[in-house]
Amino acid sequence: MSSERLKQEFNSRKKGILGALSSGTDASPKGSVDKQIIPIMELLNSHPGTVTTSSCSGRVSVFLEGRKQSSTASASQQERETDVATAGGKGGDGRWLFVTHDNLLDDILQESRDDNAFLNTIFGGIPSEPAATQLIGELSTGTRYVHFKFEPMILHVLTETLEIANRLLTCAISSSFRESGIVSPLKNPIVAIRTMGLAFDAPVGIYDPEKNVIQRFMDPPGLRVLARLTGDRFRENSRRIDSLYKTLLSAMEAPETPLESKKTRAFRKKAEGMDKGRKLAATREARVETDPLEDGISFQEEVM
């Protein structure tokens, strides 16, 4: 596909994405863009060669897995069990019991000094009780776990060219989003900006649907420790988001190469100079081999 066609396709997709954003359309369960990531989105969407396609600024959640397909069910029963959870626990009545995209856990820990109030908040009003010791040996593939999770920022950016995608990737990695990468490198590449090093997922109980009770693996003090740990992750996540914004801003201010930081540009210029020197040296050697009596100038070049 020609570069002009790629540019037209990118501009068309960008127009549609920005149109949906301006109308307030958002396909996420939350239904709106996370406010902490808006500055980065606006920065990228103002650049002619980039547009954001999906985003999450990071979140803390307590997630209840959905109903799982029974491993002992017959083939005909499994075919009927259509409303079941995926491998990640979504579907089949899987749902968030608690979720926040802001670092509210410190406030919740202060306000919910009573253990019952704290448990009621994080488990979405579902009653809980300590799990019996013998329960651990009775867990099966159909067990519905309750997870205490922290998921860091993730951002997908559609780019016009692979060159812009590579420069954006450099910015992401230099801002500690080390698991970032380029997906769909053909046509208009998409850059996935992410860091899995901050991710946190701890099973904290199982759900008993018959009693509508969560049987906890941890007591309230242990759950409060998890809440503090996720709060620490949230603060580091915010620091990395701020770092990414500053890196992108610096890169986009460079007039020669958009989305290229000064440090990256210095490395590129040095590499280009070394490559140019190698090519020049190779050319001179070739000329000497062609006609050593002409001081490095070949006969063909002298005629021309």
Rank of each mutant, 00 (worst) to 15 (best):
S2Q: 09
E4Q: 08
K7C: 07
Q8E: 13
F10W: 01
S12M: 06
K14P: 04
G16C: 08
A27G: 11
K30R: 11
S32K: 15
Q36D: 14
S46L: 03
P48M: 06
V51N: 02
S54D: 12
L64Q: 09
L64D: 03
R67L: 15
K68G: 02
K68A: 06
T72V: 12
A73Y: 07
S74I: 04
A75N: 00
V84H: 01
V84P: 01
G94D: 02
T100F: 03
T100P: 06
D106E: 11
L109E: 03
D114N: 15
N116M: 04
I122C: 12
F123C: 01
G124A: 04
Q134I: 14
Q134K: 14
Q134A: 15
T141K: 14
Y145N: 00
K149E: 11
K149M: 13
K149R: 13
I154K: 07
L158V: 02
T159I: 11
T161W: 00
C171T: 10
S174I: 02
S174F: 02
E179L: 09
S180I: 13
K187A: 10
R194E: 08
A199N: 08
A199M: 13
N212T: 11
N212G: 05
D219V: 06
P220I: 05
R224T: 06
G231V: 03
G231K: 02
G231E: 05
R235A: 15
R235V: 14
S238Y: 07
I241V: 12
S243Y: 02
E260Q: 15
K262Q: 09
T264G: 14
A266R: 13
A282I: 12
I297F: 08
E301A: 11
E302H: 11
V303H: 10
V303P: 00
M304T: 15
